[in-house]
Design a protein around this nucleic acid. Sequence first.
DNA 1: TGCGCTACGTA
DNA 2: CGTACGTAGCGCAG
Length: 642
Amino acid sequence: MTSASPSHPAAGPLADLWSGQFAPRQPLALVVLPQVGFALAYHPPTSPPQASPPGAPVTLAVPAPEPGEAAGLLAETERRCAPRWVWWSAPTTAAVPLAARVRLGACWDLAAVHRLLHGGRRDDPAAVWAAAAGLPAPPPPPRSTGIARVAQGQLGLWEGTGAGGEAAGGGGAGTSGTFGNGPLTADGQLDAGWLHRAATPGEALRRATSLATLALHTQDRQQAALGSLPDRRARPGRITLAVLTARAESAAELLVRELERDGLPVDRAVAETLLGELIGPPPRTGADELAARRRRDAPVLAHLRGPVDLRNPAAVRAALRTVGIDVPDTRSGRLEPLRDAHPAVAALLTWRRTERIATTYGHRWLDTHVGPDGRLRGAWHASDGAAGRMTAQAGLHNLPADLRVAVVAEPGRVFVRADLGQIEPRVLAVVSADPALAEATRADDMYAPVAVQLGRDRPQAKIAVLAAMYGQTTGSAGEALRRMRRAYPTALAYLDDADAAGRAGRDLRTYGGRRIRLAPAPRPPRGLTDPAPPDEASPAAGGIPETARGRFARNAVIQGPAAELFKAWAVTVRAELPALDGEIVLCLHDELLLQVPAAHADAAADLLHRSLAATATYWAAGSGVRFVVEVSILRRWSDAVH
DNA sequence: TGCGCTACGTA
DNA sequence: CGTACGTAGCGCAG
């Protein structure tokens, strides 16, 4: 970094912000209009700080038609002000800095925080604003596709409807105390198409300042709502966990955009060799494809009579019956014990393994998802499903162990892998505040003290803990579970409460404040012209039996907070990695994979330990619960001992 | 073409 | 033991 940055020709509107007393991590709302510029809004500084209620937000309109120029100005603002960037959604707003590899440190993602607060999937700006303002949910945006949907729904693009000749003018500081004639309609709802209807770039930029102001107000309201959620850790002056979770979830949105951009290092040559050994060379033609299929099928068919479609489970079951193997279904778990009963079984099990590679993780997968730069890329969700876990496509989260030899660190670099140990029972100890279970977490292997407490061996103790957390139905752990209940009554009561809520269809909140929808979604009133409402019913609320909903809820209050802790840890690591020239290349529920220069491997390992300690200090404050992480330095992912 | 089912990969 | 998710092929309905 050079200390004397060149003065940007377009920095005029930003001069006051850059030179003023902008407190680090103070909210700074941002709306980006690609090829036009960006708009900012922030609360004016008060002197002395917090002496009076904040005045009307200050807004800035910054023309920057060149993408590099916008990114440069944002980078400089990041450097000088270190704000907490507030935006409607990361995919649209952060695209410009991400493309320019400008790293923004802290953010508040209104869409992500909205999903945290309210559950469900919908997070378009109109819905986010309505919830923050206490208004009824607006009609869903039209289910159009592509650019139009993004432009209308996410405020991220302005395509221009005029002749386009006018230069984006009108920069400069100003104040805007009202949204009158702005983005809000008469009933107070956000009109998502308002920005899009601007006639000129200058007008679009002016409208963007109103949307930035609205974003700032929305952030205020979200933060207030989160701050009022119950927090056992609360102390005067301590930020509540829900607010901290909102920050971490926001940063996680940025993290996954970086994961999408940068991908996971894969050695294509290693992968191709491996696939060649397992399934043969890449098929060039349809005939090739067919021949390869026949070649894979032949060893199994040799043990069976007549033509059998191995890809049809019913046909496989029938064929097995003719050789004396009678099974209710043909899953591998069912067939495994019968491996030696007939050679066809072993052949079929081997075929299944290979077939999985051939169909899902074969040459086509490699071509589709691994780029010329040797990076495996897929789409990520920072917070998905019932519990708010990260999810990833393109096989990033379910890569068969056989293929991990192809995940190789790039020249001069190494992987540093970190795995949280027994995260779910440790999380249970925190969220339930069970003192006896917290005591058990002092051990590296917490099942050992639990076994002592239950008077059972370790394997039985482990099954008892898992049975309690996930609601075992086929009761083989009966006695151990009864002892669990006696030894850890607080933890069990917490789980039983969640179970009951699930059965009754009552919504829950995770320890970090995420709303878990269990109640059947109310059907919004449908206007004549409205399209059909999207399916907002929670997966747990449908026609699923009560017992299953109980298990679902039991699991969600553990898996959810575990995901929250994991992400809080991950974004802490992310924040410090630039100093080591490192990057996070994979997040896998309780595992982080970093790639760093070999010379910084030990420092990265240390960072992983320190970050977990720092995160647990606030996350598990007062619980006495200990978290453990195993860290190893690897050349390839498969070197990990598992 | 879309959807449920079966199956299997990961945590 | 259970939960979560993503992917693919098949069979069926439209």
